[in-house]
Write a protein that binds this DNA or RNA. Structure first.
Lengths: 305, 305
DNA sequence: ATGTCAAATGAAGATATTCTTCAGAAAAAT
DNA sequence: ATTTTTCTGAAGAATATCTTCATTTGACAT
């Protein structure tokens, strides 16, 4: 089965006639008919209702058509990716809020030299939403948290490992972890993102049930409450890049054992894969500058050009 | 470009050698080499690093390999779907909670006659999660709410339209909609599912801000609170099938204008599509028996067998 | 180094496929 | 009824793909 046959099937479905399709794929109508016949012979079924005159796909034909569209789509993407790839134009990128403020802009800046004709559109959202936007093609890629279900058509690869840190007012620096969490009020971060669930889970695992005094749903306000001497909180280290840490006491939570991984999701087959491989490197570099590096630096394979 | 060429590329990647691949695809090593060369010629690039001896894919080769795997996968599915389809064995199905109790079991019962060798595994969850499970292949299909992002590889088609109804204690039946919502306490349904967001939105659109007295996160408990005379609530009509409505006053919310559509998600290309088309019909039938029918009954195209 | 060996490439010929051309049939449009 | 458009079929040319067999290549062990 040749992909060109699938392409002509798509053309037939789109134009509504064999001869129309012939014009689209630059063949004679006869050749189009033969290709369709070849498909029918190979599958052992008829694809068209040949009694009606505007030839109409039957159920099996529709079935094959859906597959054909998908195959043609991925092969077109793959061809583009292989022959140079789209290294210019708008790259639609998504990121979760914590990394959207410093990490992403700095990584984008790193890219300016290598790809001067590339521009960026950044969408901030929650991991699940960003993931489904990538799957649907509305985004080219996104930086999202780990542990969200990844469809088979997407790939997730780690970019940075954020430690979770315990923050408290300066004056309380002398206390132990346990004392901070049980003797001082706890500022809870309540949203629907995986991060807030993860913090809850980790606390429960340590059998710590802190006295809650304030619950808020934005990271800056969590930090603000701690700075205002109202209690302690657990936040990803990167969130502290925004606020001056002068008035805060910061320490790794659970000796840095509790971390949260953030990675790049993209479609398995994407015409942007070259740019994205480069972007991933840039993220690594910037993450390491902030002491958030993941396990190992990715290698770019530049052979076969 | 022939799909067999992509298949041999996959075989080469899997076995690690041309001759190994030759055995897999039932060809001579020479033919395998020629197929790879044909691919390279068509794309105008080299795919393998030919200096090293266990031939290794280069970057472009890996790119094509990902596309090839995807193409082979979808064509295999499509072939199965076309040649009879998998109408026996375990069908992994997902559903949101409200429909999992009556609608789904009844629809499954409808299927027993047509497909006696088919068995069902039902997973209950939230729409987003179910959707990503379908995309990842862990489920064959699922019944989920509308308005969640649908990846391009999936299709969503409506199955039932649930009206949202206002429920109140019997004694308050004389009140107007507005009076019920503003003069009586409101039992809020707070979860992360789209339904609870939708209810909030609709209330806000009507400029109604009810006095909240209780917030709870399960549908049976919402109904329980109303039955206990604590206030009014807004729930999908289908949720009332569980509880006896004897003690409740029920009326359409906004004259039935506010509805919530539930539909079937499945992969665009699936070897189960025949069974799923039939199942969708069964859902329609059962939904109409409960007065929840969507716009129109789907037509099954049974030609071309 | 050098020989050995499995594996990949290359050339040649047989086979199969896929295209175009042209003629005929069949449905739609005038 | 006639024209027009659209599809099918046969024949032959052009192309592609397979197998066979000889040759070359690179890895590995001696």
């Amino acid at each position: 089965m040749d992909i060109r046959q699938l392409q002509t099937l798509v053309a037939v479905a789109d134009t509504g006639s064999f001869s129309g399709a012939a014009a689209v794929v630059n063949l004679t109508p006869s050749a189009v008919g033969q290709q369709i016949q070849a498909l029918e012979a190979e599958l052992g079924v008829t694809l068209f209702d040949r009694r009606k005159r505007p030839r109409q796909l039957n159920a099996k034909g529709e079935e094959l058509l859906r597959a054909a569209r998908q195959v043609v789509q991925t092969m077109t993407e793959a061809r583009m990716a292989i022959s140079g790839g789209r290294t210019a134009g708008m790259l639609n990128f998504g990121a979760i809020r914590t990394v959207s403020m410093h990490l992403v802009p700095q990584a984008f800046a790193e890219m300016r030299d290598a790809y001067p004709d590339l521009s960026f559109d950044l969408t901030v959202g929650m991991s699940e939403r960003l993931m489904s936007d990538v799957a649907a093609g509305r985004l080219d890629a996104a930086l999202v948290a780990e542990n969200v279900g990844v469809p088979a058509s997407l790939s997730w690869s780690p970019v940075l490992t954020e430690p979770l840190v315990l923050i408290a007012p300066r004056a309380e620096a002398w206390r132990s972890d346990l004392s901070l969490l049980t003797d001082l009020p706890f500022i809870r971060y309540v949203t629907e993102v995986p991060l807030s669930r993860q913090i809850e889970t980790e606390l429960a695992a340590l059998s710590v049930s802190p006295r809650e005094i304030v619950a808020t749903n934005t990271m800056p306000s969590v930090i603000g409450f701690v700075q205002a001497d109202l209690g302690v909180a657990i936040v990803p280290k990167i969130a502290l890049l925004n606020a001056g840490t002068g008035t805060l006491h910061t320490r790794p939570f659970c000796e840095g054992a509790i971390t949260r991984r953030v990675g790049l999701v993209q479609r398995q087959v994407s015409s942007r894969s070259e740019v994205l491989a480069r972007l991933r490197q840039a993220f690594f570099k910037v993450a390491q500058m902030h002491g958030l590096g993941a396990e190992e630096m990715p290698v770019v394979d530049s052979t076969g050009g």
